[in-house]
Simulated scan of single mutants.
Amino acid sequence: MTLAHSLAARIAADGPMRLDAWMAACNSAYYGGEDPLGRDFTTAPEISQMFGEMIGGWIGDLWLRAEKPPLHIAELGPGHGSLMADALRLLGRLPGFMGSAGLHMVETSLALRSIQRARLAGWAAQWHDRVDQLPDDRPLVIIANEFFDALPIRQRRSGKELHVDFAEGLFMPKWLPAAGADAEWSEAAHAIMGHLAGRIAAQGGALLIIDYGYGGQVIESVPLDTLQAVHRGEMVSPFYDPGAHDLTAHVDFSALAAVAHGRGLAIHGPVAQGALLGDLGIAARAEALKLGKPPHEAGSITAALLRLTAPQQMGAIFRAMAVTAPGWPVPAGFGMAASGDSGA
């Protein structure tokens, strides 16, 4: 039975599905199937090795200034493993680091796990299905790049909540009565953030979130509908052909910051991705990579740099926010953007 038939039968039996249930079912099928990366969308680590190298530098700098504690590095939704492979290439040159660090990948897709294992061959990594399976015996330094945007959301507007119905062979939006203020929110994101923040508060460490979204220190209107579906780089209906498209929504950084602040963590940012990468030295790294390269290769490096950092590309819409345990240093790239109560 296809996912569409299964969902249609579920709706026939139980009535229209709430949006978060629909999104969870669709994305579970989407990521559980063939490798979607590079087919429907491209993430920053796949654009250039520079992205992962900057994250590796961020981790290494934090470890040094935290006085080199034994720790666990974890990545949530690691994709092809490119970010971590590029980060580890840099971290492996840092004396004492790899002997004191465990490596953990939170990934549910068997297809992506296979790709990650090949990419990280030679590193003693462990894979987990859920964040609550991460070890609890050392500080955690967690990277979440384009992870929270794929978590299920709910939408409520004008006294009604968005559901998905099925009629005449088509899935379609259906608004059903529901009490409460107009909002778009993610219970799954809040739950995962709460768990991670609690673990960091207890164990020490930090979490770096990079994603497209809104909120934080910039005053702006809060959107009520950021749900989108992407197929082959083009926007399509979120209700068409379930399981065939990547369903995402913009991340509410203020909501995540409030959860972390409630666990006693320090909040840093959010800042624009371009600003973070710039502070971490990506322009100098690009120049180093271009040395001795023929013009077409040097041009590709420049193009990748612009795609990652230019405001009109990924540099502004993507934001970065870090949270740290009490007593841990302000992470590189945030500086005076750090605050103990930002977004709370």
Rank of each mutant, 00 (worst) to 15 (best):
G92F: 04
D129Y: 02
R117S: 11
A189Y: 00
A12D: 08
I153A: 07
F97C: 02
F334C: 08
D40S: 02
M172F: 00
S342C: 14
R117I: 08
P45T: 10
D341L: 15
W22E: 01
H245M: 09
D211I: 03
A25I: 03
C26H: 02
K293Q: 15
P177V: 10
A101V: 05
R18A: 10
A244R: 10
L291E: 10
R319I: 05
G327D: 07
P238R: 01
M172C: 11
T309S: 13
A206C: 11
R154S: 06
S100Q: 15
G315M: 05
H5G: 14
G33C: 13
G333C: 12
R263K: 14
M17Q: 11
E220K: 10
G15F: 11
F147P: 03
A183F: 08
G264P: 10
I59H: 01
P242E: 08
L170D: 12
A304M: 13
L277H: 07
I47A: 09
A144K: 06
T248D: 03
G57F: 10
S186A: 12
I73K: 00
G77K: 02
A316M: 06
L7P: 01
G281Y: 07
Q228M: 15
P152V: 13
M54G: 06
R156T: 04
L265K: 05
D137N: 07
L112D: 00
A286F: 11
G213D: 06
S28L: 12
F147E: 04
Q116N: 11
L140R: 01
L276D: 03
G99I: 08
P177C: 02
S109R: 09
G292L: 11
D20V: 03
I11T: 00
I143R: 09
W328D: 04
W63I: 04
I301Q: 05
G327S: 08
L71R: 14
Y30H: 08
R307W: 14
G274F: 01
A255W: 08
W328M: 07
I55V: 12
R113F: 01
S109L: 15
P95D: 15
P242K: 05
M84W: 06
G198L: 13
Q203Y: 11
G52A: 13
I153D: 09
L110V: 14
L291R: 15
L265C: 04
E146V: 00
A284L: 06
I209T: 07
L7R: 02
M50T: 05
S221E: 15
A197R: 00
W63Y: 10
L162W: 04
D132G: 05
A167N: 14
L140E: 01
